[in-house]
């Protein structure tokens, strides 16, 4: 906390919007998000939808990595579970608005099971377990669930009261609404008892268990919540694309998610994830468009960013922004 700023009541200290910058950022962000489709063309809307989908997934991974301190490299495959659940339900004629929550719950169940090994494993062991899980799930996608690299989702399951939800404004506002709900939920996790338990486990799990936190349950819950978000992201991905293939849910996607969290700001669920998704996803789209960049450059930029941020700036972009803000808040005085 900066010098000279005091919270006098517990309520003020625990409020959802604690600092003026929160209010300003929220108002500006909401205005941009709501007015964006008016200003941008259909390409811009598609990009924005993709950004929001990745933002949701990154928030999920941020709960696991940033709050609970467990590194997970299975977020891409979990997103795939959500997407495939929605696709298969849609093939049986279930409307997507019903299928997406079901897909998210399904993914959360899988994530909970994946989180169970954490009662024995910690740190790098869990990271390796998640790599193994990612590989095994990828294998299952390739062999059983989607052997032909592409499941198309029936057009009529995306229609509700005559409006087609898979494209344009309807899609954008639906995804935006889901994102806002997810963001509010994430912000509330961060400032509730569950979130504080996760932070305690992240900082030192042995002392967390000494003060009476059920470490296993907290970790499994973090995984379940992270997977819920991944499943929601996957479901929305299936809504936004006419067909889905396992190529979108590989280890590369998982690493991209991890990059979003680490670059944006681990532990800063909403704004950190948003900055990360903006930098990694949209930044990359712009870069690829501007310089006709290829896969090699993508690997180099992404890998370099991850390594540099982990070594030099563990707080991520949001840490840099906060320092800049603190510098200018009382400028030209230092405190």
């Amino acid at each position: 906390m900066p010098a000279g700023v005091f919270k006098e009541t517990y309520l003020a200290d625990m409020a959802l919007l604690r600092y003026p910058i929160h209010k300003a950022a929220l108002i500006a962000g909401l205005a941009i998000a709501l007015l964006f489709p008016v200003l941008a063309g259909s390409y811009g809307i598609d990009q924005a939808v993709a950004l929001l989908v990745f933002f949701i997934g990154a928030m999920g991974l941020n709960i696991v990595t940033g709050l609970a301190g467990q590194i997970s490299l299975a977020q891409g495959a979990l997103m795939g579970i959500g997407a495939y659940t929605v696709a298969h339900l849609a093939l049986h004629g279930v409307n997507v608005l019903v299928a997406i929550p079901l897909g998210a719950i399904m993914t959360a169940a899988v994530g909970f099971v994946l989180g169970l090994p954490s009662f024995r494993l910690k740190g790098y062991y869990l990271a390796m377990a998640s790599i193994a899980v990612q590989a095994i799930l990828e294998y299952m996608f390739k062999t059983w669930i989607d052997p032909h690299q592409g499941i198309s989702i029936p057009y009529n399951t995306k229609i509700i009261t005559g409006i087609y939800l898979g494209k344009g404004l309807a899609l954008y506002y639906l995804v935006l609404g889901a994102t806002l709900a997810a963001a509010l939920f994430a912000a509330n996790i961060g400032r509730s008892g569950i979130g504080r338990a996760m932070k305690a486990v992240r900082d030192n799990d042995v002392s967390a268990s000494v003060v009476g936190i059920n470490v296993t349950r907290t970790k499994a819950l973090a995984f379940a919540l992270g997977s819920l978000y991944a499943g929601l992201a996957g479901g929305l991905y299936a809504l936004a694309n006419p067909s889905i293939g396992w190529g979108a849910f590989t280890l590369d996607t998982s690493i991209e998610y991890l990059a979003m969290v680490l670059v944006g700001g681990p532990g800063r669920l909403v704004w950190g994830s948003l900055l990360g998704a903006l930098t990694i996803h949209t930044g990359w789209s712009l870069l690829a468009g501007a310089f006709a960049a290829n896969a090699a450059i993508k690997y180099m930029v992404l890998g370099g960013l991850i390594a540099i941020f982990v070594v030099l700036e563990p707080d991520g972009l949001i840490g840099i922004l906060r320092r800049a803000k603190e510098y200018f808040r009382l400028w030209p005085f230092r405190y």
């Binding site: 301190g69 467990q70 590194i71 490299l73 740190g123 790098y124 990271a127 690493i255 991890l258 990059a259 680490l262 690997y299 180099m300 992404l302 890998g303 370099g304 960013l305 991850i306 390594a307 540099i308 982990v310 070594v311 563990p314």
Partner: peptide, 15 residues
Amino acid sequence: PPVALIAATLGVFYL
């Protein structure tokens, strides 16, 4: 924490 080294070397992996 050991997780930091995993993440950083993962970045080097891509690089």
